[in-house]
Design a binder for these strands. Structure first.
Ligand SMILES: [Zn+2]
Ligand SMILES: [Zn+2]
Ligand SMILES: [Zn+2]
Ligand SMILES: [Zn+2]
Lengths: 173, 173
DNA sequence: TTATGTATGTTATACTATAACCAGTCAACC
DNA sequence: GGTTGACTGGTTATAGTATAACATACATAA
């Protein structure tokens, strides 16, 4: 999944998904944030302070966060401390494709591939709670086919897997 | 998906999934219920009155029901009227494979194929709310493969699709 | 029979999400 | 400049989903 980037050494350009590997996450996060801001500017979507802050909070780790966890952080930063503040910002980010909703966890995770058309499968490590996006074009193709076999037309779908990430597998958790 | 059945004309034996087709649903429901009870008896799982009643309630239609809707029905039938009563029975049914949890809807649906090893994809019609189970072996194979590509091992997964069922497509909803 | 585990019921509470209303901001328009 | 209208964020209040913890009843088995 290549992306425009000033830094030719950007690890995000080299590896498919860093969520489960140790990596320069500060770079990872600022890079994704910058891309999201550029996309917002280009499309006219307004990346206001709350919205940006929520994305920053989600980008602090590769884990999914509940809306109330996000809210607590927002309140600590001087923003509103009522649920709609968090939910509205999260809704915006999801609409813009800057975050994903993980239904299995009732939680939200920053999208690591903003701007790239993708409808990923989510891989949730049950040991370390990290969430990665896996390219799911083939999975969705198979799903569309299975649905078509009984005459059903898929519009949207969510594909979420629970299991063990490579790191946790290796360390025997 | 064939199953043991005294009636050789059983529509469940002929068609893959009736959820979206008009059919003799009374037969459909009593058949599935009977199979579930037989399985429970065989495995030693206790199909108590509440549990059986919950399954009957879920089997009244091919839609998913929220726990509180189920609870209301239970209360009307003289069972307890507190959330754990419904949640516990639903949890039992899910564990036994007699019902499925549809995370996208925060709801539960009776399994139409009890006893048959299956990890279906759920097809949710956004127009009529019916839910069908589609065989998802190939979908899961694709998902396992996509996960394996980044070293992730899938343990469980939920695959849920929202769209339009054949009936609603035809009637132009 | 008594002991043991299982199932149901109840109280209370935690967690997740949205409706509805209000005030400030900003840009388009007159 | 002043007004309008769209949008954002703040607040109150409430709806909806789920579980913890404890008490009671009931089955089965030693
Ligand atoms: Zn990272
Ligand atoms: Zn892990
Ligand atoms: Zn039926
Ligand atoms: Zn339909």
């Amino acid at each position: 999944m290549p992306h425009d980037h000033p830094d030719s050494d950007c690890p995000g350009c080299a590896t498919p998904d860093l969520a489960f590997s140790s990596h320069d996450h500060a770079h990872c996060a600022t890079d994704v944030l910058a891309r999201a801001e550029a996309l917002a500017a280009a499309s006219g979507a307004r990346m206001t302070p709350v919205r940006k802050r929520v994305l920053e909070i989600l980008l602090e780790s590769h884990k999914a966060m509940g809306a109330y966890d996000v809210l607590q952080r927002l309140a600590a930063d001087g923003f509103g401390n009522q649920p709609p503040v968090a939910y509205r910002a999260l809704e915006f980010l999801v609409e813009q494709g800057f975050a994903h909703r993980i239904r299995r966890l009732n939680a939200f995770a920053a999208c690591m591939h903003p701007g790239e058309a993708h409808a990923p499968a989510f891989l949730i490590c049950k040991s370390c709670d990290a969430v990665a996006e896996a390219p799911a074009a083939l999975v969705r193709a198979a799903l569309d086919k299975a649905a078509a076999a009984i005459g059903f037309v898929v519009e949207r779908s969510n594909i979420e897997a629970l299991g063990l990430c490579p790191s946790c597998l290796e360390s025997g958790k």
